[in-house]
Amino acid sequence: MTPRKTLLIVYHSMTDGTRQMAQAACDGASADPDSPVQVRLLHAAQAGASEVLGADGYVFATPENLAAISGQLKDFFDRSYYAVLDHVNGRPYASLVCAGSDGRGAARQIERIATGWRLKPVAEPLIVCTHAQTPQAILAPKRISDDALLRCRTLGEAFAQGLALGVF
């Protein structure tokens, strides 16, 4: 029997867009009931070093705030970083970014942190642009398009399959 693997999805969301994206990735990763992959979806405030150490792969999901990851996701990384350094080398990761206009700043910040942890990217950052540009639109609850959610779901499904097959 194949040992069970764990995919950890850590997210933060203020206006629900990133949560929808993370949930879609979780749904995709959990789609096969016979998969040897257990999926854990945790809000960044609930995740820490023990969850990182207990996982075989990671999806980090964040809104882009001022061209960076959210403060709550940054707090997760700050609380976990040194405790897991050199204990997760080579493990796979992917990132999801819910952005108003660009998203590349947040994606680069996750990439830099993942590089420090010596994680291996398994996909390009999946950035969903909401085009929210006014204070009202930025603060308003988001509705992520079905197409974008399908891309998130597909990423989660492929990631779980890759873990199950030992591809990463």
Rank of each mutant, 00 (worst) to 15 (best):
129 C>M: 01
154 T>F: 07
103 G>H: 08
26 C>Q: 05
51 E>S: 11
64 E>T: 07
130 T>W: 00
8 L>P: 06
98 C>D: 05
166 G>A: 05
51 E>Y: 05
148 A>N: 13
38 Q>H: 04
10 V>Y: 06
5 K>D: 01
67 A>N: 03
133 Q>R: 15
36 P>R: 00
151 R>V: 11
130 T>N: 00
154 T>Q: 15
133 Q>N: 14
31 A>Y: 02
66 L>R: 04
33 P>S: 08
146 D>K: 11
146 D>T: 12
9 I>T: 08
73 L>R: 11
87 H>I: 02
66 L>K: 05
13 S>E: 05
163 L>D: 02
83 A>C: 08
142 K>W: 13
51 E>Q: 15
78 D>I: 15
16 D>A: 10
77 F>T: 09
27 D>P: 00
69 I>K: 08
55 A>K: 00
121 P>A: 04
61 A>H: 06
17 G>C: 10
52 V>A: 12
151 R>L: 15
55 A>S: 10
106 A>W: 02
87 H>G: 01
165 L>R: 11
9 I>A: 10
52 V>K: 04
33 P>A: 11
76 F>W: 15
56 D>K: 13
142 K>E: 10
143 R>A: 15
155 L>N: 12
72 Q>A: 13
140 A>Y: 07
49 A>G: 11
90 G>I: 12
2 T>V: 12
29 A>H: 00
144 I>G: 07
12 H>P: 02
50 S>E: 15
63 P>V: 10
59 V>R: 01
131 H>K: 08
96 L>G: 04
64 E>W: 03
74 K>Q: 08
127 I>D: 00
24 A>M: 09
124 E>R: 06
79 R>Y: 14
66 L>S: 02
93 Y>P: 01
65 N>W: 15
63 P>W: 06
107 A>T: 05
167 V>K: 14
54 G>N: 10
128 V>N: 06
9 I>Q: 10
99 A>F: 04
55 A>C: 07
38 Q>V: 01
51 E>H: 15
123 A>F: 10
66 L>F: 05
133 Q>K: 14
108 R>P: 02
116 G>S: 08
118 R>I: 01
44 A>Y: 00
64 E>C: 09
72 Q>E: 14
82 Y>H: 15
146 D>N: 11
5 K>Q: 11
153 R>G: 07
99 A>C: 10
75 D>Q: 15
33 P>D: 05
83 A>E: 15
16 D>W: 08
97 V>H: 00
89 N>L: 07
56 D>S: 13
57 G>Y: 13
157 E>S: 03
34 D>L: 08
54 G>W: 05
50 S>V: 13
127 I>T: 03
57 G>I: 14
168 F>Y: 15
120 K>D: 00
163 L>R: 01
111 E>M: 10
162 G>M: 13
28 G>Q: 04
101 S>G: 12
9 I>G: 11
161 Q>G: 06
125 P>I: 09
